[in-house]
Design a binder for these strands. Structure first.
Lengths: 196, 196
DNA sequence: TTTTATTAATTGAACGTTCAATAAAAATAA
DNA sequence: TTATTTTTATTGAACGTTCAATTAATAAAA
């Protein structure tokens, strides 16, 4: 079996299997056995590539976060207007679901766990602050600094709130799309309200 | 030691200890030992009063939910205006923290777990729908039915979103109070926007 | 004494980690 | 090419730990 250069392949296999297992069973019931079984690999391989279960969990979170970041960056061009940029931010955040339906439950599990895990909390904070700073810089081009900060805070809360309630009520794709539209409309009303 | 009529006392002791343990260690690391130790009781008592760990977990969630409900009901009087009622709803929801600082982490843990636990998901849904229906009925007295439904959805998302982001960033009491004020201002702007 | 409340000890299953063994590919030598 | 050695990738059984649940014993109250 052994071919050279399997490392990146195996790492991705295990990360995918982790997302799948956490989505299906929850973080609590996710074991190295449930992961390795889904990956079609042995349990020992986890320690070999990630140093242990905890290392794999963290790598999985990092993967989800960088994915979210790239999802946004790849869409933005020099000609993107502030309004368009705000819409793209919303789309990227709701696409946490659209691209893979099983990632939503995973996000929620990791958020909860981040309250009791220093490493995960650090990663979570980076992500949360990036969303806010992206929003602030976009709003600042449309209104005063103070208004922009307020608008960004409300917008971030609205995105997370709509997303959270959709996940918790096990919404389908259509309901998610509806929430995404609500978030966009909300941004428009913020611009109208505070816009210079 | 044994006195008669200890059941309600012990039950509450164990529920309090569960909240405390989940807040400190997370749901994952909460064991019948960590709970019973915090309660100053033996681990066997959990099975005696709750049939097992799962029974205690569910009883704890039920306790938190009924508490939230009572928090709201006890404030509402026949003379409460719709605007006042909306403010009370927000206060009750943010008071999930104010009354006890360790309950916030507990809420988040239980939300995440509800994605993989049928019983918890049922309880969570009841609560989520009650918030929404409370909001809808209040808004309906201030605007048209369709506008009220929309306002309620946005308001529920804003409450949960602000609350979630405050919890995840480990905000202090002051920052929570600030978020509560943002939520109230948001309700006011909804009324101005859609109000008849 | 009988009942009720509680503890402390015990059980067996499940967990993450470790590690010696193995199997296949790659590299080298013939 | 073919044979041999070395490296890389992977396995799965064994180990020690931890957990929830159960059990028998104990202590106080009725």
């Amino acid at each position: 079996m052994p071919k050279v250069g399997m490392e990146p392949v195996r790492r991705q296999q295990l990360i995918d299997a982790t997302i799948s297992s956490v989505a299906e069973f929850g973080l609590q019931a996710t074991t190295i056995n449930s992961i390795s079984k889904k990956a079609g690999l042995s349990s020992g391989i986890i320690s070999h590539y990630f140093g242990g279960k905890q290392g794999l969990i963290e790598a999985t979170v990092r993967y989800l976060l960088t994915n979210l970041k790239h999802e946004l960056i790849k869409q933005v061009t020099p000609t993107t207007t502030p309004e368009q940029r705000l819409m793209l931010i919303i789309e990227a955040n709701f696409a946490r679901l659209q691209q893979r339906s099983d990632t939503t439950k995973t996000w929620l599990s990791f958020w909860a766990q981040s309250m009791h895990d220093v490493q995960l909390h650090r990663l979570q904070n980076v992500n949360s602050r990036r969303l806010l700073s992206n929003l602030v810089s976009s709003f600042k081009q449309l209104m005063g600094d103070d208004e922009a900060k307020l608008a960004a805070q409300l917008c971030a809360a609205m995105i997370d709130g709509l997303w959270l309630r959709a996940v918790l009520s096990k919404s389908d794709q259509d309901q998610f799309a509806h929430c995404e539209q609500l978030a966009k409309n909300f941004v428009c009303s913020l611009i109208k309200q505070y816009g210079a």
